[in-house]
Each structure stands twice: as structure tokens, then as C-alpha cells.
Amino acid sequence: MTFARTIAITKRIVKQILLDHRSLAMIFAAPLVVMSLVGASFNKNPQLLNFVAPALICTFVLFFTFILTGISFLRERALGTLDRLLTTPVSRADIMFGYSISFFFFAFIQSNIILFFTIFILDISYQGEIWHMFIVVILMAIVAVNLGVFISTFAKNEFQVIQFIPLLLAPQIFLSGVIQPVQNLPNLLQNISKVLPLTYGVEGLRLIMIDGSNLSGVSSQIFALVIFASIFVILATLTIKR
């Protein structure tokens, strides 16, 4: 792995997205629009919003980041630029880290829009420290970046990436405690929820925001998210084949 190559890949992708003004505007606008809609729909029931906010924050971070990363990386594969890159002395790790850092840059922006819009504009009540919430949200974004790169391997076009949303993201919404607590699910589904990263993001953020836990109180959730991020980054790196 060469640091200079990783940085060059990161800079190139960031530059490309910055030059694509429409996509850039969407990166900022989409979470703002969605979270505004969330705020408006819970206007008459702020107590309920306080309860669902942690789950919604994690879900939208996963959703937006997955789409951004999955489609961007797929474009590299489909246009042949990734193949061309693979004929240079660049290593798979250079590519993976270059892409992850650059996509994370934008995921970071989106995640912060979602988190801080929910806290300050929607004005929800919360207990824990903001920077503790920030760590869980950022870990969720890292998981989603690596998941997006990994999943793009199995798609040949943008349409197929979109098909992964009902396949990968929808079950997480139903099984990760977003709609109802995991404990209310049948045993089999409870077991499945244990292998879903969103479960740990939602649990962690709820513990901080509703119960006022600190980082040590959500250490197992943070550990699980780090494990998911590591597994996905390894899987994604392995899928970049010459």
C-alpha cells in the first residue's frame, strides 16, 4: 500500500463529486428535505419523535451513505475506469482506502446534517453527550460506505444497486428495532437482528440519546459496528479483482 496513491485516489474522487454540482447539491439537500419531512410529520407528537429519532438518524445515515457509495463505485466498475486503474501498480488496499476515505468525506457531511438537524432544528430532547452520538453515527456511516462498495460488486448497473435497497436495507428497518423493539420479534428474527449492523447503531444511539449512556455504556454496540466495518472493508477489498 502506498500513501501517495491512496491520497491521489481520494483527491480525485472528491474533486469529481465537487465538480458535479447537481450531485453535490443533492448530497446536501436530500437529508435536509427528508429530515424536514420527518419533523413536519411528528409535529403534533414530539414525544414520539424523541423516541424514534435515534432509529431514524441511523437508518437515514445507512440509507443515504449506501446509495452514494454503492452507485459511485459501481460507476467506476461499469465505465471501465476501475479496470484501467488495476493495470497500474496500485494495490487493492490503495483503491479501497482511497474510495472509502473519499466517500466517507461526503457521508460525514450527510451524517452530520442528519444528526445536527434532528438535534437543533427538530429540537428533540436528548440525554447523552452530542459527541458520543456523533461517534455512533460516524461508525454507522463507515459501515455503510464499506457495505456500499462491497455490494456494488454484485450489481452490473444502477438499477440493480437500487434493488439491493429492499433486499438489504428494508429488512434491517423491520428487524433492527427501528419500528418496534427487537425483544418483541419472534426468536428467529431476533437472532437475525444480531447480524444486522443497524441493530447496533439504533441500540447505541438510543442508549445515548434516551437513557443518557456514555461511551462505555455503549461499548458493545461500538465494538459490533467496528467489527461490521472491518468485515465489510475486507470483503470489499477482496472483491476488487484484477
Binding site: R12, K15, Q16, L19, D20, T81, D83, T87
Partner: peptide
């Protein structure tokens, strides 16, 4: 080695 593919696989917005 320098490999130039058949398609112009370049970053069109750069």
C-alpha cells in the same frame, strides 16, 4: 507497462 484500453476510460468531468 502502459495499457491503453479500447474505450476512452477517462474521468470525463476532470
Amino acid at each position: 507497462i502502459g495499457y491503453m484500453p479500447q474505450q476512452n476510460t477517462l474521468y470525463s468531468d476532470l
